[in-house]
Every structure is written in C-alpha cells, then in structure tokens.
Design a protein around this nucleic acid. Sequence first.
DNA 1: CGAAAACTTGACCAAATGGTCAAAAAAATT
DNA 2: AATTTTTTTGACCATTTGGTCAAGTTTTCG
Lengths: 238, 238
Amino acid sequence: MPKGRQAAEQGAPSIANSADVEASETGGNGGRTRQLNEDRILKAAEAVFAEAGFSGTTMQAIAVAAELPKANLHYYFGTKEGLYTALLNRVLDGWVDAFDHFQTDRDPAKAFTAYVRDKMAFTRHRPMASKVFANEIIHGAQWVALYLQTRLRDRVREKTAVINGWIEEGKMAPIDPTHLFFSLWAMTQTYADFDVQVAAVLNKPTLDDQDMDHATEHLVTLVLRACGLDRALRGQRR
Amino acid sequence: MPKGRQAAEQGAPSIANSADVEASETGGNGGRTRQLNEDRILKAAEAVFAEAGFSGTTMQAIAVAAELPKANLHYYFGTKEGLYTALLNRVLDGWVDAFDHFQTDRDPAKAFTAYVRDKMAFTRHRPMASKVFANEIIHGAQWVALYLQTRLRDRVREKTAVINGWIEEGKMAPIDPTHLFFSLWAMTQTYADFDVQVAAVLNKPTLDDQDMDHATEHLVTLVLRACGLDRALRGQRR
DNA sequence: CGAAAACTTGACCAAATGGTCAAAAAAATT
DNA sequence: AATTTTTTTGACCATTTGGTCAAGTTTTCG
C-alpha cells in the first residue's frame, strides 16, 4: 500500500509541507525523493494555477510544467484539490509574516515603511503566489475561509491594537487601522495581481525592477502622508 | 439562416450592445425579443462568471441562472467566448466613466472625493462586474489588453495631466498621478473583489451598506490626506 | 393569409479532463 | 541477496462540457 494518497487526505491545513528549506544539497538524490518531487510539482502548480485559476488549470498542464507524467502528480497529491490546497498552504504562510513589523516599541514611520517594502518585495519576487491567493479570494475563498476568520483576523486585531496605541499617543494621525490594512494590501498586491493593467497603462511590455522600485517609493510616500508621518522623517532614505 | 451567430463574431469590441437604456417598457413583448433575452443572459452571465471565472463557468450554469435552455445562449452569442466578450464590453463601459471628475477648473479635493465615492458606489452596486473585470486582468487580460493599451491609457494620460497641473499650481502635494490611480483603483475595488476577505476580518457574514459607507469615508480621508488636501476642506461633509 | 425570417429547444456529439490501475522499476531495509 | 516499501508510468475510464442540429413554434411583413 503506497502512502501516496496521504498527503492529500489531510482535511484542514496545519502548517503545510515545510518547503523553503529544501535540501537541494542532496546532489544525485539521497533520501528525500518525495520532498524533492513535491517541491517541483508545487512550483509548477503555482505558476499554472496563477495563470489559469483553479478551473482553468489542468493536471496535464502542471505535469508538463513539472516535466513529470500526470499520474505522478496524483501519486503525490491524490486529487487536483489536494494539490491546490497544499499550494495554498504554502502561499498563506508567506503572507502573514510581514506583520511582525508592528510592535509598540517601534517607530511608526519605520514600521509602515518596512511593511510596505516587505509587501512589495513579496509581490515582486512571488507574483504567482499573490495571484493564486487573489484568485482564491475572488472566487469565494472556499478553501481559505477558515484561515481568514482565524489566523488572519487574530493577527489583524493584534496589530490594529498597536496602531491604535500609536494614534492615542499622538504619534500618527487618526485612521481606522483595519481598513488601513485593507488599503495597504490592495495597493501593494495590485502590482502583482493586476500587473498587466499597470504595465499597459505605463506603456511597458512588463514591469521591471525599476518600475517596482518606483511603485514602492510612491506607496511609501502615500502611506506615510496618509498616516501623518511624512514630516517625521526627513531626507531619511532607506 | 438565423442571424444568431452574428453577435459573437465581431472580433474586437467596438461599443458593445448598448444595454442600460433597455426598453423594459415593452410590456408583453412588442419587438425587441432579442434585446430582452440578451440582457437577461448577460445579467445571468455576469453573476456566474464573477463567481466562477471564465473556465469555471459552464454554459449550463448560465442557462439555469437565466432560466433559458442552453441552446438558446448559443443562439444569441454563438460561443462561450462570444458571450464572455460581450459581457466584458458591457463591464468596461461602466468602468471608465468615473474619470470625468478630473477637470482643471474643478477643486482637487472635491474631485478626488467625488471620484472615490463614485468608484465605491460602482463597487457596491455592481460587485459582480468588478469581479469579472478583476478576473480578466489577473488571467492576463487576454480579451481587454487592447482596451487597456488604448482607451484606458489615453484616459489616464489625459487625467494625470490635470493632476500634474494642480500639483504645479501648489494646489495639492506632489505625487505620481499615474501610480495614484493604481492605488485608487486597488483600494476601491478591493471591497468588491476581496469582499470575502474584508468581511472575514471584520467578522461579518457579509458587507452591508454601513460597512461600505464606513469604508468610503476611510478612503476619502486617506486619499485627501495622501494628496495634502485634508486641510483644504474643513467640516465640509458631502 | 401565407411565406419568410426570427426564435425555441431537446437530443446528440466529439473532445477534454480528473482520476484509476496494474505492472514494473528503484530504493530502502533486513 | 531477499524482501518490503516507495516511486514511476502508460493505458484506460466515466463524466463533463462546449457546441451542433434539425424539427418545431412564433413573429414579422408583404
């Protein structure tokens, strides 16, 4: 009895397949065949799902992208849904991390600047992940609804408290912190999700590093100003 | 030879089936059977495409939503793509209209306020349209690429000139007008496209009028402040 | 009225797609 | 080396789905 099916059967996501710290050192192979192949498949899946959405994606397309036979994907992830949820877990983990910038002891201006820069860095380096996430939410968040209502909500609550603290201390202008987060997410992710639109309006074939740097500076300026933090730091670049 | 096919064959969109000014006056029927049915189908299609995306949508689902036999859809729109592009045209038209607020003679603060409110009104009243559009862009804007590179770009260029004028006259803080538009679009549309996420974080089953009003006020404040227009109008509500 | 045009619709395909399976090849384990 | 476990894969389904069609029904119009 092969244990291929197991990866797909875990109903609700826990921490997901670690990934990232992949042991790419194991030259020829070694031991983690499974780890290696799952990573390979997930990487391919991220690109395909981002481009085509869940329904538009075929297992065959992922198989081709991963350079593996289709039956192989089913061996590792069971079903298309299994593969998709595994991918979502991977994406979600990277999504919340940037939150750690908001700590009471920190300078608000620096915190917001760092947050925007982090989000934009994520957007730039993993645009596909962003699109997969966006797609999932737009279509009703069938698989991540629970996540949104628990982990994300708690995290937001926690951080809005910090921001409210700053506001009460007069360190920044009054603003609804929760909606501020919605705005921050929207403004940063638009450069990944709607990259085609941005590029079209900018009359560029695609967004390069320079464009993204420009966008990042724009957002930092906009956000600091909106929070009444613009005159806090002067000539202080990076 | 029925002329059913014709509606779908027009390659690039022109102005699209007027709609809006539908003659719902024609009680029992009268003459515009086609007009009536196309509207009905498009309305159903908007909801289904928004929920499921292009690939996730089946003609059957639209047929059910429109309470018409599937073959009927094909009669009026030829193919699924034909129906989809017809729908896109309808959506796009409503999208650009809000631009008309930016005129040199107008007060910047009022213009931005009105723009944000308009966008939010559109978001609230036609969330499905917004989602259809978002979906199209995320998946590469296969059908609206031309539109983005021509009509939208021209419109943006035109309006950024107005904003730059305001900036040079010292009427508002310096900011990149083009990216400002990206930010405005992102912040407003997020309440339609990512409504599920917003609702989840706010711990609400769904977004009601009150939520949207709150969001609108938040955005107006944020935008005015970001543009250095917050002290321009004091106590001036609506 | 009568013919032509427009509209309706159930039945029917061919292709695409998610998923299965059994047999075989590799690896790991004893 | 023998055996057990894991991995690989081509061939093969059952279902779904976009699209077609031909036989009707209704509407338009001379």
